[in-house]
Protein backbone atom coordinates (compact mmCIF):
# COMPACT_ATOMS: atom_id res chain seq x y z
CA UNK A 1 0.00 0.00 0.00
CA UNK A 2 1.34 3.35 -0.97
CA UNK A 3 -0.90 5.33 1.36
CA UNK A 4 1.36 5.72 4.37
CA UNK A 5 4.88 5.20 3.10
CA UNK A 6 7.40 8.00 2.97
CA UNK A 7 7.35 9.67 -0.41
CA UNK A 8 10.64 9.47 -2.28
CA UNK A 9 12.33 12.29 -4.13
CA UNK A 10 12.45 12.06 -7.90
CA UNK A 11 14.67 13.27 -10.68
CA UNK A 12 12.91 13.71 -14.01
CA UNK A 13 14.24 14.36 -17.48
CA UNK A 14 12.30 15.23 -20.57
CA UNK A 15 12.62 13.50 -23.95
CA UNK A 16 11.09 14.61 -27.18
CA UNK A 17 10.13 11.42 -29.03
CA UNK A 18 9.15 7.79 -28.51
CA UNK A 19 12.44 6.75 -30.13
CA UNK A 20 14.57 8.74 -27.72
CA UNK A 21 12.50 7.50 -24.77
CA UNK A 22 12.97 3.87 -25.84
CA UNK A 23 16.67 4.51 -26.28
CA UNK A 24 16.86 6.14 -22.85
CA UNK A 25 15.00 3.20 -21.28
CA UNK A 26 17.55 0.80 -22.74
CA UNK A 27 20.44 2.86 -21.37
CA UNK A 28 18.81 3.11 -17.94
CA UNK A 29 18.30 -0.64 -17.63
CA UNK A 30 21.82 -1.29 -18.94
CA UNK A 31 23.27 1.10 -16.38
CA UNK A 32 21.53 -0.97 -13.69
CA UNK A 33 18.90 1.43 -12.39
CA UNK A 34 15.99 -0.30 -10.71
CA UNK A 35 13.59 2.35 -9.36
CA UNK A 36 13.07 4.27 -12.53
CA UNK A 37 10.08 4.68 -14.78
CA UNK A 38 9.19 5.94 -18.24
CA UNK A 39 6.18 8.18 -18.78
CA UNK A 40 4.42 8.81 -22.07
CA UNK A 41 0.95 9.94 -23.19
CA UNK A 42 0.33 6.57 -24.89
CA UNK A 43 1.61 2.97 -24.75
CA UNK A 44 4.83 2.36 -26.67
CA UNK A 45 5.49 -1.00 -28.33
CA UNK A 46 8.71 -2.59 -27.13
CA UNK A 47 8.92 -0.54 -23.94
CA UNK A 48 8.69 -3.59 -21.66
CA UNK A 49 11.62 -5.13 -23.48
CA UNK A 50 13.67 -1.91 -23.42
CA UNK A 51 13.13 -1.52 -19.66
CA UNK A 52 13.87 -5.26 -19.19
CA UNK A 53 10.61 -5.69 -17.27
CA UNK A 54 9.64 -9.19 -16.25
CA UNK A 55 6.24 -10.52 -17.31
CA UNK A 56 3.54 -9.63 -14.85
CA UNK A 57 2.55 -12.40 -12.41
CA UNK A 58 -1.11 -11.39 -12.84
CA UNK A 59 -1.95 -14.51 -14.85
CA UNK A 60 -0.93 -16.77 -11.97
CA UNK A 61 -2.85 -14.71 -9.42
CA UNK A 62 -5.99 -14.78 -11.57
CA UNK A 63 -5.58 -18.48 -12.31
CA UNK A 64 -5.18 -19.37 -8.63
CA UNK A 65 -8.19 -17.31 -7.63
CA UNK A 66 -10.24 -18.95 -10.39
CA UNK A 67 -9.25 -22.43 -9.22
CA UNK A 68 -10.13 -21.53 -5.62
CA UNK A 69 -13.54 -20.31 -6.78
CA UNK A 70 -14.15 -23.40 -8.85
CA UNK A 71 -13.13 -25.96 -6.24
CA UNK A 72 -14.96 -24.02 -3.50
CA UNK A 73 -18.16 -24.01 -5.48
CA UNK A 74 -17.87 -27.68 -6.48
CA UNK A 75 -17.39 -28.47 -2.78
CA UNK A 76 -20.31 -26.31 -1.68
CA UNK A 77 -22.78 -27.67 -4.21
CA UNK A 78 -21.61 -31.21 -3.51
CA UNK A 79 -21.93 -30.89 0.25
CA UNK A 80 -25.28 -29.09 0.29
CA UNK A 81 -26.93 -31.43 -2.17
CA UNK A 82 -25.48 -34.69 -0.89
CA UNK A 83 -25.33 -34.16 2.90
CA UNK A 84 -26.67 -30.78 3.98
CA UNK A 85 -30.02 -30.60 2.22
CA UNK A 86 -30.31 -33.75 0.15
CA UNK A 87 -33.44 -33.61 -1.94
CA UNK A 88 -34.53 -35.42 -5.06
CA UNK A 89 -35.32 -32.86 -7.74
CA UNK A 90 -37.10 -33.99 -10.91
CA UNK A 91 -35.91 -37.54 -10.45
CA UNK A 92 -32.24 -36.73 -10.83
CA UNK A 93 -29.40 -37.91 -8.56
CA UNK A 94 -28.62 -35.84 -5.44
CA UNK A 95 -25.49 -34.32 -6.84
CA UNK A 96 -26.47 -33.52 -10.42
CA UNK A 97 -23.36 -31.56 -11.32
CA UNK A 98 -24.78 -30.41 -14.65
CA UNK A 99 -27.26 -28.20 -12.82
CA UNK A 100 -24.46 -26.40 -11.01
CA UNK A 101 -22.21 -25.66 -13.96
CA UNK A 102 -23.60 -22.09 -14.23
CA UNK A 103 -22.95 -21.27 -10.59
CA UNK A 104 -19.53 -22.97 -10.57
CA UNK A 105 -18.63 -21.04 -13.70
CA UNK A 106 -19.94 -17.76 -12.30
CA UNK A 107 -18.03 -18.01 -9.03
CA UNK A 108 -14.87 -19.02 -10.90
CA UNK A 109 -15.16 -15.88 -13.00
CA UNK A 110 -16.07 -13.72 -10.00
CA UNK A 111 -13.02 -14.74 -7.98
CA UNK A 112 -10.81 -14.40 -11.06
CA UNK A 113 -12.12 -10.87 -11.51
CA UNK A 114 -11.41 -10.12 -7.85
CA UNK A 115 -7.93 -11.51 -8.34
CA UNK A 116 -7.44 -9.32 -11.39
CA UNK A 117 -8.79 -6.16 -9.79
CA UNK A 118 -7.23 -6.37 -6.33
CA UNK A 119 -4.08 -8.04 -7.67
CA UNK A 120 -3.62 -5.13 -10.04
CA UNK A 121 -4.05 -2.64 -7.19
CA UNK A 122 -1.60 -4.53 -4.97
CA UNK A 123 1.07 -4.96 -7.67
CA UNK A 124 0.85 -1.28 -8.56
CA UNK A 125 1.03 -0.36 -4.86
CA UNK A 126 -2.27 1.46 -5.15
CA UNK A 127 -4.10 3.34 -3.79
CA UNK A 128 -1.45 6.00 -3.65
CA UNK A 129 -2.98 9.42 -3.40
CA UNK A 130 0.00 11.56 -4.21
CA UNK A 131 3.44 11.40 -5.76
CA UNK A 132 6.01 14.21 -5.45
CA UNK A 133 6.51 14.00 -9.20
CA UNK A 134 3.31 16.00 -9.57
CA UNK A 135 5.05 18.96 -7.92
CA UNK A 136 6.82 19.54 -11.21
CA UNK A 137 5.01 21.92 -13.55
CA UNK A 138 6.89 20.57 -16.56
CA UNK A 139 5.64 17.04 -15.83
CA UNK A 140 2.05 18.10 -16.58
CA UNK A 141 2.96 17.87 -20.26
CA UNK A 142 3.23 14.06 -19.97
CA UNK A 143 -0.47 13.66 -20.63
CA UNK A 144 -0.19 15.70 -23.79
CA UNK A 145 2.96 15.85 -25.85
CA UNK A 146 6.05 14.98 -23.89
CA UNK A 147 8.01 11.96 -22.65
CA UNK A 148 9.76 11.62 -19.32
CA UNK A 149 12.13 9.34 -17.47
CA UNK A 150 11.98 9.49 -13.69
CA UNK A 151 14.42 8.05 -11.14
CA UNK A 152 13.32 7.64 -7.52
CA UNK A 153 15.63 8.32 -4.59
CA UNK A 154 14.96 4.74 -3.38
CA UNK A 155 17.16 3.46 -6.16
CA UNK A 156 20.32 1.79 -4.83
CA UNK A 157 22.42 3.68 -7.39
CA UNK A 158 20.84 7.01 -6.50
CA UNK A 159 23.23 9.92 -6.30
CA UNK A 160 21.82 13.26 -7.29
CA UNK A 161 24.78 14.59 -9.25
CA UNK A 162 25.53 11.28 -10.98
CA UNK A 163 21.90 10.63 -11.98
CA UNK A 164 21.60 14.18 -13.32
CA UNK A 165 24.66 13.93 -15.49
CA UNK A 166 23.69 10.41 -16.64
CA UNK A 167 20.21 11.57 -17.69
CA UNK A 168 21.79 14.44 -19.60
CA UNK A 169 24.28 12.12 -21.24
CA UNK A 170 21.50 9.91 -22.65
CA UNK A 171 19.73 12.90 -24.18
CA UNK A 172 17.43 14.10 -21.39
CA UNK A 173 16.49 17.77 -21.35
CA UNK A 174 15.28 20.04 -18.54
CA UNK A 175 16.52 17.70 -15.82
CA UNK A 176 14.68 18.56 -12.64
CA UNK A 177 15.20 17.41 -9.05
CA UNK A 178 12.04 17.06 -6.96
CA UNK A 179 12.35 16.72 -3.20
CA UNK A 180 10.61 13.92 -1.34
CA UNK A 181 8.31 14.44 1.62
Amino acid sequence: MGLFKKLPGVIIAEFDSTGSLLHAAEKMSEAGYKKYDCHSPFPIHGMDKAMKLKRSPMGYIIGTMGLIGMSGMVGLTYWTNTYGYSMVISGKPYFSWQAFIPVIFAITILLSAFGAFFGMLALNKLPQLFNPIFNSDAFAKVTNDSFFVSVESHDPMYDEAKVKSFLESIGGKNVEVIKGE
Binding site: S90, G91, K92, Q98, A99, I101
Partner: peptide, 12 residues
Protein backbone atom coordinates in the same frame (compact mmCIF):
# COMPACT_ATOMS: atom_id res chain seq x y z
CA UNK B 1 -22.62 -27.34 -26.91
CA UNK B 2 -23.01 -27.24 -23.14
CA UNK B 3 -25.97 -24.85 -23.27
CA UNK B 4 -27.71 -27.00 -25.84
CA UNK B 5 -27.22 -30.08 -23.71
CA UNK B 6 -27.93 -28.32 -20.44
CA UNK B 7 -31.43 -27.04 -21.21
CA UNK B 8 -32.49 -30.36 -22.68
CA UNK B 9 -31.00 -32.27 -19.73
CA UNK B 10 -32.74 -29.97 -17.26
CA UNK B 11 -36.22 -30.08 -18.78
CA UNK B 12 -35.82 -33.77 -19.58
Amino acid sequence: AGSQYFLIWYAN
